[in-house]
Design a protein around this nucleic acid. Structure first.
Lengths: 193, 193
DNA sequence: AGTCCGATGTATCAGCCCGATACATCGGGA
DNA sequence: TCCCGATGTATCGGGCTGATACATCGGACT
């Protein structure tokens, strides 16, 4: 089990599920995916690729693999693709609903592949996430109440804003859950912009 | 200057500004402060204390320093307190408005000491933060628009929610700025112990 | 009184991750 | 032609996290 950056491994497997890629390309997709906020360094990507290959979940090939603009292919490249075992592991990892598996940044990454899960698993995961978020909210609210009078107005206002954000996240999850329960056939595209 | 965990150093200096403390107590205050979400390990706190002491910003003393329940004082403890230079450095660090100084988690920590800044600095910092947050929002929005059609509904919905959160943060800052501008004559309520 | 247990308290370590950097090739523009 | 930025792979130092070790104290329970 990859104790080594589970989230990154999952994202790599998921991206390679669609089409083989080489490192540089992977990084671009990854930073575009979750990276609008968090950057990803090669220092973790390449070791991760090496690790996944050693596990037998990826296979390498030095081929060309359709570069964006037609290229002769002389350039040194290592194209990675999923093995059968890799696909299997990806499915298993994605379906996990363990306590830490679907929290915070893990959630963002996993959510990118959410459509590949079946309706039951989706619902189960959303509810689990909601529960844990609610628990955390309660905890923060308690410690907030305990220290409230000792805080100046700025700190207090910051905490209030933080609580409100979490509450909003929970409501967002509620909407998703509701939508999943109602009609799994149609997508949750109801942007009110 | 401390390339070594600036934020932690600032928080430590700020907490010790109020009253001397020892490591364990500091950690409790720190985790209560920002730690509802992010935990803090001793592995970074103790080296930080050592570092700040070596710089001459803190001074140690093995004394008792008023433990919560009257204690004989035999227990091994190291109480840290701010030196004059430490106070000076704290003021300087807190007043900085550099690009990275007031972003994200840095902001949370610094905001805890916001009331100690003068009105002009507060306003300048809030506006700087707002500007950079807006820039980031624009960047994310662009990359969102660029890849929108290739995303499934879940990813799209996640991104929409993320954008909305940032928009809300910006509006929150706007409220704060507005409040600062309005009542800048008499500092918006000095703290009440 | 004795004894266990959790809180208090300081400190270190392996492992991992980030940011920077090195090195090399390619396409394209002045 | 020649430089420059994008493409590409790879490594390293330093700092941080999570776990752990070690020790004392107060209180609860029998």
């Amino acid at each position: 089990m990859a104790r080594r950056n589970d989230v990154l491994a999952l994202a790599v497997l998921g991206l390679l599920h669609d089409s083989p890629m080489h490192g540089y390309e992977l990084r671009k997709h990854l930073t575009a995916m979750l990276g609008s906020f968090r950057a990803l360094s090669y220092g973790s990507l390449y070791p991760c690729l090496k690790d996944l290959t050693a596990r037998g979940w990826l296979s390498q090939s030095g081929a060309t693999a359709a570069p964006p603009h037609a290229l002769s292919g002389k350039r040194a490249r290592i194209v990675y693709q999923l093995t059968a075992e890799g696909k299997e592991r990806f499915g298993a990892m994605l379906g996990e609903s363990g306590p830490a598996s679907w929290d915070d940044e893990n959630f963002d990454v996993r959510f990118a592949f959410f459509a590949r899960l079946d309706a039951d698993t989706r619902l189960r995961i959303l509810e689990g996430r909601r529960t844990r978020l609610q628990e955390r909210l309660d905890g923060v609210r308690q410690s907030f109440a305990r220290t409230r009078e000792r805080l100046d107005e700025y700190t207090s206002e910051l905490q209030r804003h933080g609580l409100e954000s979490v509450e909003r996240d929970i409501r967002w999850l509620d909407d998703l859950i509701d939508h999943e329960r109602r009609g799994s056939s149609r997508g949750p595209n109801e942007q009110k912009e």
